[in-house]
Design a protein around this nucleic acid. Structure first.
Lengths: 225, 225
DNA sequence: ATTACTAAAAGACGAGTAA
DNA sequence: TTTACTCGTCTTTTAGTAA
């Protein structure tokens, strides 16, 4: 049983195989040959190929003087994901971030706040859409929780606080966003004690229905800063 | 003194930083934050950043509650190289391979053979250019020595053997190639005992002069199979 | 809270070897 | 020649700690 190796190393091996041409058709390659490409020993090359096969990234047919190797669909998908990352890095026009979180049901406060005329008038005017009466709550993953700090560095769309007869309502800012091509907006209240891993989202329609999603669903949102 | 780490791991760390946005402007990021992105411990994250800085891939300014980090030109170049690899993988139209070797002076046999009417007539007719009387000899690197085996799987442009009064001249095949946008052709003799790490190249003009290169120069050739 | 060291544990590598 | 095992060695990671 070969241990599963560092995924970063795996992707590199897979990339090397793709560059040699193993994505289109099987190539014949001994461990010794492959070691020249990964800059390592034949033993390590052999182990890498074993691991990749075990992970379903490649298919192999071992013959007496080498092995016929092809990258499988799973392997190609992994490489595409990697390629996609680099495309993001080099072709991203606007300053935007992608956040990932899971949907959960909040306390229904969003609905209450949106209903306040002091807010809804501003939303209608500044957001470009009339928000559905209710927010979508995401619990961000750890990476996104770090990324969301970027909100602090940007002005966004200012939402002013106001006073009603009974109480004061704090201000905040919004950022135009997209969830699966649906325009929406992230609300970032000015409140200092706001949980950093929770994201509140406004949208023109009920996203739970529009996207057919329920609590626990993983949501990807692209926020334009 | 921090040891230099596996370059594959370095590139991955750099890529993660780029995705967070450290390519455009400095980002504030603690080791603990970064560890969420590289899926490792804060210690490892700290070490990775140290290493990247030492290698000149990033610039850092350490403050009390984190570090402002930007990817340097060297780092961006490394990422571009990586991106370029993936572009090659996914956007390569024709079946071609890139070989790398160093120029050396052969025994002048190329000149002798090209001069033989039995060959030169075929070259003129089948190659699309009249070859300069003399071949360019490359000593391939280890990777290219492996890659050149692909010649065996392809027909190429057939060059027939022939007999003169004194001796017989063997056949072989050619593959259209490019060296820095100059059309040339690789000659692959049928001879079974031909050194695997040597590549002979025909071109319409004297490449040594055209490219201003001398023995020992590293040459990149793209061969269309 | 940081960064980054040291030292012990975990993991990867590669020489030797068998099939 | 191959592949792929074992096992000693070297490398990397991470807990603990200091600054």
């Amino acid at each position: 049983m070969v241990k599963l190796v560092n995924p970063v190393v795996d992707i590199d091996s897979l990339k090397k195989l793709a560059l040699i041409g193993a994505m289109k058709k099987p190539i014949k390659l001994s461990s010794h040959d492959f070691s020249k490409f990964i800059d390592s020993s034949p033993q390590t090359a052999s182990r890498r190929l074993q691991t990749l096969e075990q992970e379903g990234m490649i298919s192999r047919t071992i013959v007496s003087d080498g092995q016929w190797t092809t990258i499988s669909k799973k392997g190609v998908d992994l490489l595409k994901k990697e390629y996609n990352d680099y495309q993001k890095i080099f072709t991203q026009k606007r300053d935007c971030i992608e956040l990932v979180g899971t949907l959960f049901t909040g306390l229904g406060e969003g609905q209450y706040y949106i209903a306040q005329g002091g807010y809804s008038d501003q939303f209608n005017e500044k957001l470009g859409f009339v928000p559905f009466p209710g927010t979508l709550n995401l619990r961000l993953n750890e990476q996104s929780t770090v990324l969301r700090r970027k909100f602090e560095e940007h002005k966004g769309i200012e939402i002013n606080g106001f006073k009603s007869e009974n109480r004061t309502f704090g201000g905040g800012k919004c950022f135009p966003s997209k969830i699966e091509d649906i325009d929406c907006a992230v609300i970032v209240p000015d409140r200092t004690h706001y949980p950093v891993d929770i994201l509140e989202i406004l949208s023109p329609k009920n996203l739970r229905e529009g996207l057919n999603i329920n609590d626990g669903a993983e949501i990807n949102i692209t926020v334009i800063l």
